[in-house]
Nucleic acid binder design. Structure first.
Length: 415
DNA sequence: GACGTCACGGTTGAG
DNA sequence: CTCTCAACCGTGACG
């Protein structure tokens, strides 16, 4: 289904269920484009009283008055809150209104959550993992050295024939050509990577190693928490990694490089910048709105900060704490700027949630186990995405993953 | 009125 | 360095 956003689906869709839509009334399809959303002058907080910091946070304002960045995922805090509220029994339509997020989005996020257990957005951009791994390069080099006149397509065939690659990860002829041109230009010298050598990390990185979403680090090991949760393959519990290409075909797996990857993943969590600086460097984001990150693990700081683009209200606003009516948001956030950290609330237990890990509760104070919540939320069970996204969960880490996990520095004030 | 679905325009990042 | 492409995004509107 398309709900997940499967491309094919969309592509194949022009006719599919959308039949009737093919002739969208003029007014229709206005979608995002039709009605020039408030853009450009980035939605900065209400240009008046707005938070100074948010001078030019840009975004658009939806019909509900909420701010969003076209093409970009909602902040994890919001995503999380959507799930939380849903778990509190609040109807999606109400959640939509309260958070000022389109109901379609709420529906989508909840559906995904139900399906995968993850509140996190999928991996955006990028493409399949590199197929030109060190090992492949090495073979190409060997072939080339063995037969300087060999054609790229011949190399390709040989890679397949020799089992170096399979049809899923064999480099394209153009890629091979490029390799020949760029990396194997001078056959005399050993390539950048030597067979036995430990391959440089980068190439091995699975998809999106840079994808800085606050994906909880593997160590979050939701799996662990999930313990007996049905359908929660412990090992795979990683719902969060955005996209992982068919692990079975994963180059990294094939090459046995995964370990590194995993580690990297873990780091990512710690280093946590929610979004890549590039984009994330949105000006004016008031990062201070969030408690200093302790968190480290995935969503935490990252998650929260990740939402940088969205002006964040003071932490105090916590959302749920009081399931405030939309109007509860400070005027300054007029445009429904997404509220602050998702903390501050004590989510209801989750069905699948491992006993004893109530969402965010323990920990007094800061950061805390708020992570649990996130974790739990984020990893209900490794859904297909999950599985796909992350080959395996790292091991032996996180002494107390839960705590740090998303570190949703929830002002958990367990109170 | 609620909600699932999906076209749309947009962003992203590997190749 | 730029372009291409395919993935994902949230919105908004239909049904």
């Amino acid at each position: 289904t398309c709900a997940g956003g499967a491309r094919p689906c969309a592509a194949a869709r022009p006719g599919a269920g959308a039949g009737p839509r093919l002739g969208p009334p003029p007014s229709r399809r206005a979608g995002v484009a039709g009605r020039p959303p408030v853009r450009g002058p980035p939605v900065t907080g209400p240009s008046g009283p707005g938070p100074p910091a948010a001078e030019h946070t840009y975004g658009e304002v939806n019909q509900l008055g909420g701010v969003f960045v076209n093409g970009r995922p909602l902040p994890n805090a919001i995503r999380l809150r959507i799930v939380e509220l849903a778990q509190l029994g609040i109807r999606p339509c109400d959640i939509s209104r309260q958070l000022r997020v389109s109901h379609g989005c709420v529906s989508k996020i909840l559906a995904r959550y139900n399906e995968t257990g993850s509140i996190l957005p999928g991996a955006i951009g990028g493409s399949k993992p590199r197929v030109t791994t060190p090992n492949v390069v090495k073979h190409i080099r060997d072939y080339k050295q063995g037969d300087p006149g060999i054609f790229a397509w011949e190399i390709r065939d040989r890679l397949l024939a020799d089992g170096v690659c399979d049809k899923y990860n064999v480099p394209s002829v153009s890629s091979i050509s490029r390799i020949l041109r760029n990396k194997i230009g001078s056959l005399s010298q050993p390539g950048p990577y030597d067979g036995g050598k430990q391959p440089p990390p980068q190439p091995a990185l699975p998809y999106n190693h840079i994808y800085q979403y606050p994906y909880p680090s593997p160590m979050a090991s939701p799996a662990a928490k999930m313990g007996g949760h049905p359908g929660a393959p412990v090992g795979a519990a990683h719902v969060s990694l955005p996209r992982s290409w068919p692990s079975a075909h994963s180059v990294t797996n094939i090459l046995g490089i995964r370990t590194f990857v995993e580690q990297t993943g873990a780091l990512a969590g710690t280093e946590g910048s929610a979004y890549p600086p590039k984009m994330e460097d949105w000006p004016s984001v008031n990062r201070t709105a969030f408690p200093p990150a302790q968190a480290v693990n995935g969503i935490d700081k990252a998650a929260m900060e990740g939402d940088i683009k969205y002006p964040q209200p003071a932490p105090g606003l916590s959302s749920v704490g009081g399931f405030l009516p939309a109007c509860a948001y400070p005027p300054s956030n007029q445009h429904g700027v997404y509220g602050g950290p998702a903390g501050g609330y004590i989510p209801p237990g989750h069905p699948w949630q491992p006993q004893g890990t109530p969402l965010a509760h323990h920990g007094p104070g800061v950061a805390v186990h708020g992570g649990d919540l996130a974790t739990a939320m984020a990893f209900k069970q490794p859904g297909r995405e999950v599985v796909d996204r992350k080959p395996a969960s790292p091991v032996g880490k996180s002494p107390d993953p839960l705590n740090t996990i998303h570190g949703l520095s929830i002002p958990a004030s367990s109170s």
